[in-house]
Design a binder for these strands. Structure first.
Lengths: 282, 282
DNA sequence: GAATTAAATGTAATAATACTACAAAATATA
DNA sequence: TATATTTTGTAGTATTATTACATTTAATTC
């Protein structure tokens, strides 16, 4: 709604403009204010406040304040803290899920759209994609492979460091490697990527900004999570990385229609008879 | 705040409980309601509404409604729609991530704390845990195994339906099976679970409410996502299920201190020399 | 099990807040 | 300059939230 107010400047009368600028100057303050207070501080009468609300196509001040609260609420970031042994199960659920949500919010704001675009076009045109990661990232690697395979892409996951190196040595110029790592500092992974580079593969990485891995990449999807080493850190990283993979996969699916979409549809049709009564994909 | 209301059930008086359940049954509705309406529909008097708000440590009904609006705003903000080919990369990122966030929000509000508690105690006391899932849930199964292994639990993942059946037949009374499925209707998985039951294992499931799988379970962690079959459905399900597994794993870690926590610490120390310069776990 | 006390709840009045009708300015138009 | 039109404010009304107090309900003690 704040954006709407900014956009509608032209349509406001003189006093309504006063109200608008008061609200825009410090929205937080007016979430708790009564109509009287807002009228006073913007130097207009109370009916003018009501008229201002009506100009915004709202029923009145009550709705205005509600909308303002909602507007600001979506900006408030999810706060969370360490889980400890005394937490109730409710608190446990809340902290774990909230921390996951907060890292997804970070991804949403950090992910560079142009790099996503570039990555999608590289992946959709390369002859083969291999996906590398070690440790906890192994899960993300397998997840990525599953998604890419469903799109009919020629993809291979390697979360074992020895297999990775062997595979990296065999790559060719029209292939590409998706490297996933939170720190971007795993020696083993870096070694594999160096080999892959020498083989001429295009390197796309999902990792932290100032990392050695980022430096070795042709395309770098930057994900920077908190530095702090809490118990939830690995979970946050994994959720964030998976979200990036999801974005790539969905992007590939919709960009390259109808080929991929058709393959997706078929992949689920094939499984139909393997479900009880109602049909829903696993 | 809705979570707070759920958590505080114990501290409410009889009439306050009526108010709480009215609010929880349909929070959306009461964002726009006056105190009078809420009083009427929960079958109590208006002062009781005020007292209810005060019990929540709020100044009164006005603040209550504000908070409720803000609570729901975070959900409203995360509404999303189908991704299509014309979307910009920015829109793509926004839609995919937002849909993930919205399913996590659902998990947060749906997850039954007491079942989580029960599941944690079953898992921490059983001799061995096996994790079953098919199709897309396979990723979640492997993820769960990795987490449980790090806690030093004796766990085994089976995403292959034949191995599952063999393993299920060999289970004993003090073992437990974690079954993961979105629909809870996969014939193959149901078959494995029936066998596991006959072997005397305790069945914990992460699946939809009214599903056959839920009916076969000793403990049921209900996750109900949207019925609609969009492209993002598998992603939403996987993220939601993983969040539940995360909650269990973290819960196990903090409840059973210091044993598990120490194992976790060791697991990361062992890997120290495998990272460049700064030390961060994958 | 009755009497006493404390807690919970509702009734009715009051205070606060939002809204409306109408009149006065201000501005535009002829 | 006179007249219409729009904008704004004053004062009153309606709605909504809150408080004070009475009543009921439940718990405790003898």
């Amino acid at each position: 709604m704040l954006n709407q107010i900014r956009a509608m400047q032209a349509e406001f009368s003189k006093s309504e403009t006063k109200v608008a600028s008061a609200v825009l100057s410090d929205p937080q303050q007016y979430v708790k204010a009564t109509m009287h207070q807002l009228a006073l501080e913007s130097g207009v009468s109370e009916p003018t406040i009501v008229r201002f609300c009506r100009t915004l196509k709202l029923s009145g001040y009550r709705e205005f304040r509600l909308r303002l609260a909602q507007d600001l609420a979506s900006q408030i970031h999810y706060q969370h803290s360490q889980v400890d042994a005394n937490d109730s199960a409710t608190q446990l659920v809340d902290k774990v899920i909230s921390s996951a949500i907060s890292s997804l919010s970070k991804v949403r704001s950090q992910l560079a759209a142009e790099v996503i675009d570039a990555a999608i076009s590289v992946i959709s045109t390369c002859a083969r994609i291999e996906i590398y990661g070690v440790g906890g990232a192994g899960i993300v690697v397998n997840d990525a492979q599953l998604k890419f395979a469903r799109l009919g892409l020629n993809s291979q996951p390697y979360s074992d460091i020895y297999l990775q190196r062997v595979a990296a040595g065999l790559l060719e110029a029209d292939t590409c490697v998706l490297a996933i790592s939170n720190s971007g500092r795993s020696k083993d992974l870096l070694e594999s990527i160096k080999i892959a580079r020498q083989s001429g593969a295009t390197i796309i990485s999902i990792t932290a900004s100032a990392s050695p891995l980022a430096a070795l990449s042709d395309l770098h999807l930057a994900i920077d999570l908190d530095e702090e080493e809490d118990q939830l850190a690995p979970i946050k990283a994994r959720i964030a990385h998976m979200a990036v993979v999801d974005t790539l996969a969905i992007g590939l699916a919709v960009r390259s229609k109808p080929a991929y979409l058709e393959r997706l549809r078929q992949a689920s049709l094939v499984l139909e008879d393997r479900f009880e009564t109602r049909n829903r994909r696993q």
